[in-house]
Amino acid sequence: MHLLVIDLWFILGKATLIACIIGLSFFVAMYTTLAERKVAGWLQDRHGPNRAGPFGIFQPLADGGKLFFKEEIIPLASNKFLFLLGPGLAMVTSLVTSTVIPWAAPVTTATGTFPVQVADVDMGILIVFSVVSVGVYGIMIGGWASNNKFSLIAAIRGASQMVSYELPMGLALIAVIFMTGSLKMSEIVSHQAEHGINFLYQPLGFIIFFICALAECNRTPFDLPEAENELNFGYHQEYSSMKLGFYLFAEYINMFVSAAVMATLYFGGYDIPFVNEASWGLESWIMSAISFGILMIKIAVILFVFIWIRWTIPRFRYDQLMNLGWKKLIPLALINMIISAAVMLWLKK
């Protein structure tokens, strides 16, 4: 009689993978903050932070340390529990998104094949969507619990922005999904390895998806929830110390994950585009390591474009933001979807 039937090795393996991915997310997010400041400097003919360690590589640690030692202020009239829950929720949702991303080619050993992916579920990309849609609560709860009118307005502004831009994002994605015929991330990648990257077939879809990703991550030109200079500091106005750090950090993790999602959906994920690397005949773990590096390079390029856009384009006004989302992007995404569907039907005949 077994009291508990659990595949211990399976759970242990997945737990290790999850720990690695969370560590990776934190690490990349940390250095994205540095890259942000560095690139901002370069684009403005400055050097960027370069005092903490060579080329400023310890700057993120210094920033984190500073945030830790800041005074922790919880407003007296705030809702204490929800005030604490908000940043935690924002952090958790941003970390959970990375579960379905295939990080590298599967490793084959004598005992079997191990996909470098936490969960290769049938729903795949929809999981990302569900978690992103839940991510609104971190903002809303934080803004409401601060008991500050401006925070509340900013939170509602942010939440309605995120809800609005989920729609064109999903519509742009549908074209990719019916080209692949599956929602599974691993199949989307393998389809692209066979037929070429999706970006070649769906350039408009990618642009729509990218714009929506900017809005979902609250990045410029859509950073209205935290428009520091004209609309207060946004929903985290009352936050200080590491709770503020959580909000800011969650944003960078969101950036990282959305870059990973875009790289997977439109640029072939861990696959090297236009190269048949299976013919090299390398060991599977070496192949896996190389493919991981390839995915990271793609992510880095997308992150650079994120930052580059931030230091180029000023913020949209709120009505412009809503007009762009509802009146331009949704019709465009619908047209893109219909055209791709028609072309696919025509090709199949």
């Binding site: 579920v121 049938d122 729903m123 929809l126 999981i127 969507f129 569900s130 992103v132 849609s133 839940v134 609104v136 609560y137 809303m140 939440a159 809800v163 989920e166």
Partner: peptide
Amino acid sequence: QFLAIVNIIVYAGAIMV
């Protein structure tokens, strides 16, 4: 799975917002 995800996207993610 589909029902589970749609339940979260539609109810938890949109309507409850």
